Simulated assay, not measured.
Amino acid sequence: MGQGHGHKLHFHGHSPVHRAAPHHKLLALLGFTLVVVATPKDWFAAYGLYLLLLAAVVVVSTVPPTYLLKRLVVEVPFVVFALLMPFIATGPRVEVLGVSLSEHGLLAGWALLAKGTLGVLASLTLAATTEPRDLLLGLERLRLPQQLVQIMGFMIRYVDVVGDEMRRMRIARESRGFTARNPKHWPVVARSAGALFIRSYERGERVHLAMVSRGYTGSLRQGSDR
């Protein structure tokens, strides 16, 4: 039940958020993101209100909070950088628990962490309540260039295929006793990545030739397979 129909990020449900038009949700996400980014760093109360608003949307969507929190791991690199900023930034210093930290770094790190978390959480909520092909239809309604929509559609369709190919290559390496433990093994991993790129490129050419042979003229109807 918790797995999506066609994508791992989607959470199947019938809430008002799930039923909302995809292009409206895309516009809402864009507007929310722009407002969060434009908010000054020291407006702490505003960030609290944004979080409450986002929490209300999550509650209405019936998506379990743990479902979203597990996927916040994608934000880890930004969290690490935000935690480092008070130590590496210049400017006036302040002592916190006996440690000298940069005031500008503290404020910048807080802003990066708050804005990044709100943006990622909002994006995950959209992905959890909207199926990928509905997002493509929403982008079409918003008049995004047709070719970009098609590229995104193919990415969604074939990301699992490429992921399975990568997993099979990893299993093949491990079955031969190879495990990347130190930088000496990086050349092997790099060659595997190059081989995966070539295979993916060749697969794309074969798919394109198959589409052309079946009358493809440069446009697709995203909802035709419903």
Rank of each mutant, 00 (worst) to 15 (best):
Gly2Leu: 10
His5Asp: 14
Lys8Val: 14
His10Glu: 05
Ser15His: 00
Ala21Leu: 13
His24Ile: 13
Lys25Ser: 03
Leu27Lys: 05
Ala28Ile: 10
Val36Thr: 10
Val36Trp: 07
Val37Ile: 15
Thr39Ser: 10
Ala45Asp: 12
Leu51Ile: 01
Val58Phe: 07
Val60Glu: 09
Ser61His: 04
Thr62Pro: 04
Pro64Ile: 08
Pro65Ala: 08
Lys70Ala: 08
Lys70Leu: 11
Arg71Ser: 05
Val76Glu: 11
Val76Gly: 11
Phe78Val: 15
Leu83Asn: 06
Ile88Arg: 08
Thr90Gln: 05
Pro92Asn: 06
Arg93Asp: 10
Val94Ile: 12
Val96Asp: 12
Val96Ile: 15
Gly98His: 11
Ser100Ala: 14
Ser100Thr: 12
Leu101His: 07
Leu101Asn: 07
Glu103Leu: 14
Leu106Gly: 07
Ala108Trp: 03
Leu112Arg: 13
Leu112Asn: 09
Leu113Ile: 05
Lys115Phe: 08
Thr117Ser: 15
Ala122Lys: 04
Leu126Pro: 02
Leu126Arg: 02
Asp134Ile: 01
Leu137Pro: 01
Gly138Cys: 00
Leu139Trp: 05
Leu148Val: 13
Gln150Pro: 01
Gly153Pro: 04
Phe154Cys: 04
Met155Ile: 11
Ile156Asp: 03
Val162Asn: 04
Gly163Ser: 04
Glu165Asp: 06
Glu165Met: 03
Met166Ala: 14
Met166Tyr: 06
Arg168Asn: 11
Ile171Asp: 13
Glu174Gly: 09
Glu174Val: 02
Ser175Thr: 11
Ser175Val: 06
Gly177Cys: 01
Arg181Thr: 07
Arg181Lys: 15
Arg191Leu: 09
Arg191Cys: 02
Ala193Tyr: 10
Leu196Thr: 13
Ile198Ala: 06
Ser200Cys: 06
Ala210Leu: 05
Met211Cys: 12
Val212Asp: 12
Gly215Cys: 07
Tyr216Met: 03
Thr217Gly: 08
Gly218Trp: 09
Ser219Met: 14
Arg226Cys: 09
